[in-house]
Simulated assay, not measured.
Amino acid sequence: MKVKGDIKDRGNIKWTALMLPEHVRHLRDWQAEDELVPEPGLTEFDMESMQLELELAYKRQIDTMVTKQKEIIN
C-alpha cells in the first residue's frame, strides 16, 4: 500500500470489484509483461569469448555445461 501524503493508495485493488474477471486477468498479464526485460542478443565479442572458453575447457578435458536462453517470439 502506497502512502501519498495523508491518503493511503491501494492501487488497482479498490477497482477490482468493479471489473470483470477477464479484465483483471488481462491487467495482471499486462503488468507481468511490463516487468519482463528482454535479454540482449549476443555480440561478436560474446560469441568469441564463449568460443575461447569452450576451447580451453576442451584442451583441459573439463566437463562443461552450455545452456541456451529461451527466445520469445511475438
Score class of each variant (00 low, 15 high):
V24I: 15
S49Q: 07
P40M: 02
E44V: 03
R25W: 08
H23M: 15
A57V: 00
D34R: 13
H23T: 12
E44M: 02
I7E: 13
K59V: 04
F45P: 00
E22I: 06
I72Y: 14
E71C: 01
Q51S: 04
S49F: 09
E33M: 10
W15T: 07
W30G: 04
L18P: 01
M65N: 06
I13N: 12
P21S: 14
M1T: 11
L56D: 08
E22Q: 15
A32I: 05
L36I: 10
I7S: 07
N12C: 08
E48M: 02
L54G: 01
V3K: 11
A57R: 00
G41E: 14
V3Y: 10
E39Q: 04
H26L: 14
D29R: 13
P38F: 05
D46Y: 03
L36W: 09
V24A: 05
E71N: 02
K14F: 14
L52W: 07
M1G: 10
P38T: 02
E71L: 07
L27F: 10
N74F: 09
D46S: 01
A32T: 04
V66C: 11
E39W: 04
E35V: 03
P40E: 11
E55I: 05
F45T: 03
I73Q: 08
T43W: 05
M19D: 09
M50Q: 06
S49I: 01
Q61R: 09
D9E: 14
L56T: 04
K68M: 13
I72N: 08
E53Y: 05
L36N: 01
F45S: 05
W15E: 14
K70N: 11
A32H: 10
N74Q: 11
L56S: 02
L42S: 08
E39F: 03
K14H: 14
E22T: 07
L42T: 03
I7G: 00
I72R: 08
N74A: 07
P40D: 03
Q69L: 06
P38L: 10
K68C: 10
D29Y: 07
Q31H: 11
L56Q: 01
E39C: 05
M47Q: 07
M1N: 08
N74T: 10
D63P: 06
D46E: 12
F45A: 11
E22W: 10
E55H: 06
Y58L: 02
R25T: 10
T67I: 06
N74I: 12
L56P: 00
G11V: 02
E71D: 12
A32Q: 15
G41M: 04
E71I: 08
V3D: 06
P38V: 03
I7Y: 14
M50I: 05
K59I: 03
E48D: 03
L54N: 02
V37D: 04
G11N: 04
E48W: 03
L52T: 06
H23I: 05
R28W: 07
R25Y: 13
N74E: 14
L42M: 07
K2I: 09
D34A: 11
L27E: 05
T43N: 02
W30H: 09
S49K: 10
F45M: 00
G5Y: 09
L52Q: 07
E39N: 04
T67Y: 10
D63N: 09
Y58W: 03
A17T: 11
E35D: 03
